[in-house]
Design a protein around this nucleic acid. Structure first.
Lengths: 353, 353
DNA sequence: CCAGGGCCGGCAAGCGGTTGCCAGAAGTCG
DNA sequence: CGACTTCTGGCAACCGCTTGCCGGCCCTGG
């Protein structure tokens, strides 16, 4: 344990051992070609013997590049991010960057504090589902290259999923199954995705002549979805689209324990296609976001930005979403306009057949 | 976007503006008390006006402390780590440290490479379910304080869950339900936890006079669990304990599609109590690891170590595990010694009642 | 009234690299 | 053969902050 005091060798040690100047050692590593091939080889050999490794910190000081990128996530606990993290990580590693992960714990304030402490450390930042205000984001985008993920902020490049298209597909699917009224379970109000999805739903629904109704907002969690049951019962529909999979799962569970059957009594569609979506019973029909690709795209774009590229397009980069049809959606049953599961009997307007 | 060229102010800028020496500015922040209260106050005010923030990199160079800790995870995609990450993050933030997250992608080699690039950056490292060899771990423990999570390596402090106790509880639970033979679905061979669990199972089973049988190893994933079905069918038992929840879930699914009922035909117990465990149908009975606490404990111990504390005990810090009984375990049915679901009919030795 | 001790601020030497500039050696060319 | 490149290696000045050491000033006690 106490071995840790042995300081690791520096370029000076290597320089002395190899009989050259420290600058030559530095160049042998940082700028091969700038130094004679043989010399470089020799230096490299000596360095290897000494176990020399260039100290990234010391390197970063004069160059200003740390080869670190920050990934800030609104809630690491949310399975939605698992694949995003991995995608980001992959892209970072591939480019020789290391990732600094920060959990904002669904709090704009904590997010800010964390950022405060790390902006100066990183070469760029990916903000995943940031809960900060647009202006706060723009503020930090002034200090470092920033890419926002799953959100659009004017003047800041972003990558998002094609929510409108995904939503349209979900609506068409539901329409084909004979559903006429769709309830949207809203997520957090601070969420850009939530706004986009609801907006997309209204448009999609209009196209195919259905009706949409929004309830919420709820927490974007299983508990939040379950909590939505009461509101849903007050204004029941045969189909529900939830802000995300977690809420969809929560709702399904609540419905089930309330005695309703999914998908027979009500069809439920989620968003994101998180890992658990195919595990639950019934398996969840959901709009799949290309999670891995998003993480990857975000980091790649960020790195391009950091290298001085102009922000590619002025709009967000939009990645295609797909509808994954599983077992939580089915044909609407003609005689099930009014639910048997309502905690409150509905206003009577919807008469039983 | 181009604003990023504006360099941020340094202590020199502040010093000039405040009419003091740079060292005084430095001390005003780093060592309050060493400098006159009024002066400090004035400096702080000027600094605030200039928007000065101390550059952690520059600070780290002379001090050698980066206030960064590395968390290396064998597979970020595994939900098992979600809460661990958060626990670790919480403990780190609370101590003013930032976390560097690395995904080893279940590869000892990638793990090593990643470490290679980051050891020199961090003040300490938490290795979660490392896939590296003991000696490799000891090697890096020589360079930096290291805590291994979910594994025991001699001479390196670690935090683990109390697998033996957890296993004992699971076995007793199964015994009470009348099961006599238990199959263990083994996880990765490189996994320390796997060895411990199997060992614990054998002992626990011996105590209560049951029988245990091990099949595997399998991938510690849903697919791995599903893949285990064939082996299980060859040697069926009424109860199964899986290396982890993911495998348990996979097995349950495979069993179900093969026509077996869980828990009626076979009881399944998992390990870890990941998020999805309570979501699946039937909800999974599992040995719950204190995920959040583990991440937290790991980081706290690491920080203590980094501060120069002697490794607390010489054995691993063991956190209590609990059995969470849900719906995937039930009384053994007398007449179900031989399964109706076997893909291969069993050797006939186990006659139908 | 003077010696001794705090308190405070400044000086300057690093921490471990990078890099602009310089100069000697070697190669090129008319 | 001399002028001009090109190739290589060294020198030294940073990058932004920390910190050991010094010294002036003021306070206190004998």
């Amino acid at each position: 344990m106490a071995d840790q005091v042995t300081k690791s060798p520096t370029i000076y040690d290597v320089a002395r051992a190899a009989g050259v100047a420290s600058s030559t050692v530095s160049r042998a590593f940082a700028r091969p070609g700038r130094v004679n091939a043989e010399t470089a080889e020799r230096i490299r050999k000596v360095a290897a013997e000494l176990g020399y490794r260039t100290n990234p910190l010391a390197r970063a000081l004069p160059t200003g590049r740390t080869c670190l990128i920050g990934l800030v996530i609104s809630d690491v606990t949310n399975p939605f991010y698992n694949e995003i993290i991995r995608g980001a990580q992959a892209a970072a590693t591939e480019a020789g960057y290391t990732m600094l992960l920060t959990d904002a714990q669904e709090s704009g304030v904590k997010e800010r504090e964390a950022l405060e402490r790390s902006v100066s450390l990183v070469d760029g930042i990916v903000l995943a589902s940031s809960r900060m205000s647009d202006s706060a984001i723009r503020m930090i985008a002034k200090q470092r290259p920033v890419i926002v993920l799953n959100r659009a902020v004017s003047d800041v490049p972003s990558v998002v999923t094609d929510n409108p298209r995904g939503m349209r597909r979900a609506v068409h699917h539901l329409a084909e199954l004979g559903h006429e009224r769709i309830t949207y379970l809203a997520g957090p109000e601070a969420s850009w995705a939530d706004g986009t999805r609801w907006q997309a739903l209204r448009e999609a629904v209009h196209d195919v002549d259905l009706h949409a109704h929004r309830i919420g907002p709820f927490e974007p969690t299983v508990a939040g979805g379950a909590a939505a049951l009461a509101d849903l019962a007050r204004h029941p529909t045969s189909a529900v689209i939830a802000y995300n999979d977690l809420m969809a799962i929560g709702l399904i569970r609540a419905l089930t324990t309330a005695g309703a059957r999914v998908p027979d009594d009500v069809s439920v569609v989620g968003f994101d296609n998180v890992f658990a979506a195919e595990l639950v019973t019934p398996a969840l029909t959901t709009v799949a976001a290309p999670l891995h690709a998003m993480g990857q795209a975000a980091v790649r774009n960020l790195l391009a930005l950091a290298r001085g590229a102009r922000p590619t397009t002025h709009g967000p980069v939009s990645l295609p979403a797909q509808l994954v049809v599983r077992a939580s959606t089915a044909h609407r049953r003609r005689n099930s306009t009014s639910p048997a599961w309502g905690t409150t009997r509905v206003s009577g307007s919807a008469a039983r057949a």
